[in-house]
């Protein structure tokens, strides 16, 4: 079981639709911690990503590169830039490839997690998108079958939300809300769960 460029194009379209569908929910989640614009930002960002997918490209890395470029041009939000970092990491890791076996997903997501931590300064346990990514990467360890990977990833993203909901945010603007963040989903983790759910249908 492996993913190819057509799978990626389809995933980009689904992510665009999922971001649009989650617009209000993510704005509301972010609004409890201030701005209230995470939904607006991700809707715009994933529309730009889907738009940027080259139609005939077979090289998976080139698709990720195009996604990264679209991100770098269209967002400056911290969560948006983490998406840029993810796309750049995936582009580098898949250079010259036309397929990515499911068995490699765990390693790729772990690389994305590590790059996000290096760039954004998050630690595991800070209650950020990095924790959601970490949970999903670990859930895919040793999984080679597509259906099994989908089930594991989906369950891990939801479990991460449940695990962290009662904790305090320790990073960025959310950090400033301290104990008031207990009981709230982190908007980045929530967005990750919603997008993942759509992308892996």
């Amino acid at each position: 079981m492996a993913l190819d460029a057509d799978d990626l194009r389809l995933a980009a379209d689904r992510a665009r639709d999922a971001a649009a569908a989650a617009h209000d929910e993510l704005n509301a989640a972010d609004g409890r911690l201030g701005d209230g614009d995470t939904g607006v930002m991700l809707k715009r960002l994933f529309a730009a990503i889907a738009e940027a997918a080259p139609a005939d490209e077979r090289d998976v890395s080139k698709l990720f590169q195009a996604f990264a470029k679209a991100c770098a041009a269209s967002t400056g939000s911290s969560l948006g830039t983490l998406v840029t970092v993810a796309m750049m990491t995936l582009a580098k890791a898949t250079r010259g490839r036309e397929t990515v076996p499911v068995a490699e997903l765990a390693g790729l997501l772990a690389a994305v997690r590590d790059q996000m931590m290096a760039r954004g300064g998050a630690q595991l346990g800070d209650k950020s998108v990095v924790d959601a990514l970490d949970a999903v990467a670990r859930s895919l360890d040793g999984v080679t079958d597509g259906a099994a990977a989908r089930a594991a990833a989906r369950a891990a993203a939801i479990a991460a939300l449940d695990e962290f909901r009662g904790r305090e945010n320790r990073l960025g603007r959310a950090r400033m809300f301290g104990a008031r963040t207990k009981g709230l989903d982190d908007p980045g983790m929530l967005a990750f769960a919603r997008l993942l759910d759509a992308v892996i249908v």
């Binding site: 701005d35 930002m41 400056g76």
Partner: peptide, 9 residues
């Protein structure tokens, strides 16, 4: 950048 969002890379 956009209102209250960083400038793009």
């Amino acid at each position: 950048g956009d209102v209250f969002a960083g400038p793009s890379v």
